[in-house]
């Protein structure tokens, strides 16, 4: 939920700073269906059907990052997308080297007040995590308790770059002097 709220805040920052989200119609976004498919699959994995084979869940979870990577590659020339790609790469790397699960800091989860139930979790405290620095180590407390990674922060910085580069008001033409 916090990711959606953060995205909404980024979107709201555009009109609040004089930009117009309508200008997003001017860019050509390729393979628009990849994002919704990736989110849908992740939601099924974590929320709807977290039970069953952990290995299968982990493999499919990594697969969703392949979908995201394909989208980012197809849209790499859009402003901000290279920044988003760096964050996504860091998240994907941490998830891949940990067998399909994002390593989380136990301390961060405790500070955020999270308690995991049974079933597959795409982010979890691991006994022997790799690259924990790229894992979920940033606690976000109430009202939307969660844990974030460095990659997440980079992703949202990239989103802000994209939105504000595309949606800002075109700069006024310089006055032509007839003198």
């Amino acid at each position: 939920m916090i990711l959606i709220v953060l995205a909404a805040v980024c979107l709201a920052s555009v009109p609040l700073t004089g930009g117009s989200l309508k200008r997003l119609a001017q860019i050509r976004v390729r393979w628009v269906w990849l994002g919704p498919v990736a989110v849908l699959v992740q939601t099924v994995l974590v929320t709807i059907a977290p039970g069953g084979s952990h290995q299968l869940h982990a493999l499919i979870h990594i697969g969703t990052y392949v979908l995201v990577g394909a989208f980012l590659w197809a849209n790499r020339r859009l402003p901000g997308v290279p920044v988003i790609s760096v964050g996504t790469f860091l998240n994907g790397l941490a998830i891949t080297v940990n067998g399909g699960v994002m390593p989380a800091s136990a301390r961060a989860e405790k500070l955020a007040g999270l308690a995991l139930g049974k079933g597959f979790h795409n982010s979890a405290v691991l006994a022997h995590p790799h690259l924990l620095w790229f894992g979920d180590i940033i606690p976000v407390p109430w009202p939307l308790p969660n844990v974030l990674s460095v990659g997440d922060c980079i992703i949202y910085a990239g989103l802000l770059v994209l939105l504000h580069r595309v949606c800002r008001r075109p700069e006024a033409e310089p006055a032509i002097s007839l003198a």
Partner: peptide, 30 residues
Amino acid sequence: VKKFYLYRAASAVAAIVTVVVASGAGQKWG
């Protein structure tokens, strides 16, 4: 034409936001 323009803007928002959310899905869906 205006509806098409709004549709393109909305689809761009949906595509970008969902990719950003999926990119950060190392989190729980709390």
